[in-house]
Design a binder for these strands. Structure first.
Length: 497
RNA sequence: GCCGCCAUAGCUCAGUUGGUUAGAGCACCAGAUUGUGGAUCUGGGGGUCCCCCGUUCGAGCCGGGGUGGCGGUACCA
């Protein structure tokens, strides 16, 4: 290759924030998704798939500036000049689908969907620009029973995935209650919308920053250890105490909240209504056997800020793990959701109530790995049986052997290439093949085939010290009559398990 | 977005005050071994020292700017 050519070669690389996933992880993820799917279908939810690309306005985003993609969203223009975007969640496309097919769908419409979503933002540890979500939603029911059902389903899914009771909790809160609390400290009305956002964000950080950090964020602001300053909400002391006592009051005594929900919300009709809905969800769950060890009210849950209108949920893993510095740290959220009564209404004359829950698939996957759930345990991917090519002019015979094995349901391939036998064995090894099929001229003359058990062979190799021994032993291989190939291969495969 | 750290072979890293043709281990390929995965030995392939500009007789090394990666923080539908 000339220098010029090497200079013009393309560098093989993945775009930042995107990753390849290989056979082992795909299989493990697939098993995990199957378990969730089974749970959701038990609850009567049906599958739905929508495209990864939607019209930008259907996703609820404003049009991007000319030739500049919208903040956080991958967007581009179709040849009819309409703006398209890659979906950034699975809820907005569902709202579009329901609105488009409103008359023929049963109401309430229960459905689930799983797939990649895309966000055009800075990737971070465990954060990618393409990642998988698993959503379930009920559209067309305003009843707290629909919310309770979603929460119970999420709890069941956690347990079926091998997360022990007590190691997870579905926390519920209500946007109405949060708004009610803010009304009670005088933060109502349009003019305070910005400060309400700051307060909500501050509450959301209770987990990570603790009460003191949140106190700073509710007051003037907080400087983090990198020196960056986050401007606070500028509340006065009594208001801060109200927010904190509310948010911290989540501990339970004898199954009842340890704080006076209604007392606090006495001044707010909206807040009282939200609280009643929350208690009803909790009652419904409890009657169905889901106690506060699994589903409980937690006033510190905030979730996203954009479209939730009532109850919000969060699936939290409560067991402790250790970060790279050895500090104990809780795993935290693996999913969340809530009621979004306004989303479908963007497309239709009247609002349609809806509630849903979304699982962050890769985060949950990481959690299952951490607790050693067998569902995601790494099982080495078993490759095909490899038929070695010793005599180049007998390729047809080797192909016939592989075909016989495949017809009997055994994954098999003929070695492709002109390499020597040693290289072929190395190849089979790298493929993690269970068996190699060998028929050179010696075997052919006797009407035989040699089957080499690569798993047993590897085990035997560990005890062989010298090259002479290695040569002499030829471990874990045996000759069989050619006609018995399929039966003997199947037998050898069964013995490996 | 803001703050910090880093960038030399596929991977992990050496590389002297700035001085010839930039090295090691691992990995990869081949031979030793007529037809056998491991071990051992021998050999081989593989580099825009992230990019550009500058300083210098001379830059992997010094200076400026950029890009990329990592970490923190903010945002998170």
């Amino acid at each position: 290759m000339s220098k010029d050519e090497s200079k013009s070669k393309v560098e093989a690389r993945t775009p930042r924030g995107l990753a390849d996933r290989e056979a082992g992880e795909l299989a493990a993820t697939g098993r995990m998704l199957d378990v969730i799917r089974q749970v959701y279908e038990l609850y009567g939810f049906e599958a739905l798939e929508t495209p990864a690309i939607e019209y930008t306005d259907a996703l609820g985003k404003f049009l991007p500036d000319q030739d500049r993609p919208n903040e956080g969203v991958f967007s581009f223009q179709d040849d009819d000049e309409q703006w398209l975007s890659l979906r950034y969640d699975l809820t907005a496309p569902l709202a579009r689908f329901v609105a488009q097919n409103f008359d023929r769908l049963p109401k309430p419409y229960r459905s689930y969907r799983v797939g990649p979503v895309y966000r055009n933002e800075k990737p971070g540890p465990g954060r990618f620009r393409q990642f998988m979500q698993f959503d379930a939603d009920t559209v067309g029911s305003a009843s707290p029973a629909a919310d309770a059902e979603i929460c119970m389903m999420a709890a069941d899914a956690m347990e079926r995935l091998g997360i022990a009771r007590g190691d997870y909790v579905i926390k519920i809160n209500s946007r109405k209650v949060l708004d009610g609390v803010m009304q009670s400290i005088g933060l109502s009305g349009e003019e305070n919308a910005g400060r309400r956002l700051v307060v909500l964000r501050a509450i959301d950080k209770l987990d990570r920053l603790g009460p003191d950090g949140v106190r700073q964020l509710l007051a003037e602001g907080r400087k983090d250890e990198s020196g960056d300053f986050t401007k606070g909400a500028g509340l006065d002391l009594p208001a801060i105490d109200t927010i904190l006592s509310f948010s911290l009051g989540g501990q339970y005594r004898d199954g009842a909240p340890a704080f006076d929900l209604f007392g606090l919300l006495g001044k707010s009709e909206l807040g009282a209504q939200g609280a009643e809905e929350l208690l009803e969800i909790e009652d419904l769950a409890r009657d169905a056997g889901f106690g506060p060890d699994r589903i409980r009210i937690d006033p510190s849950v905030v979730r996203g800020l954009e479209y939730y209108t009532g109850p919000v949920f969060e699936a939290d893993l409560t067991f402790e793990t250790r970060d790279e510095k050895g500090h104990p740290v809780r795993f935290g959220s693996v999913g969340g959701g809530g009621r979004y009564d306004g989303l479908v209404g963007r497309f239709r004359p009247e609002n349609t109530p809806a509630t849903g829950f979304s699982i962050g698939v890769s985060r949950l996957f990481a959690a299952l790995k951490l607790i050693g759930s067998p569902i995601v345990s790494a099982r080495p991917h078993i490759g095909p049986v490899v038929v070695l090519v010793l005599d180049r002019d007998r390729l047809a015979d080797y192909q016939r052997m592989a075909a016989q094995l495949r017809n009997a349901g055994v994954a098999a391939e003929v070695y492709l290439g002109a390499a020597g036998m040693k290289a072929q064995m190395k190849y089979a090894d790298r493929r993690n093949s269970p068996l190699a099929i060998i028929q050179g001229s010696d075997e052919k003359a006797r009407g035989e085939v040699t089957i080499k058990d690569l798993v047993a062979g590897a085990r035997a190799a560990a005890n062989i010290a010298t090259n002479e021994q290695w040569k002499a032993l030829r471990p874990a291989q045996f000759a069989i009559p050619e006609a018995e190939l399929v039966d003997q291969v199947k037998k050898a495969l069964e013995e490996q398990i």
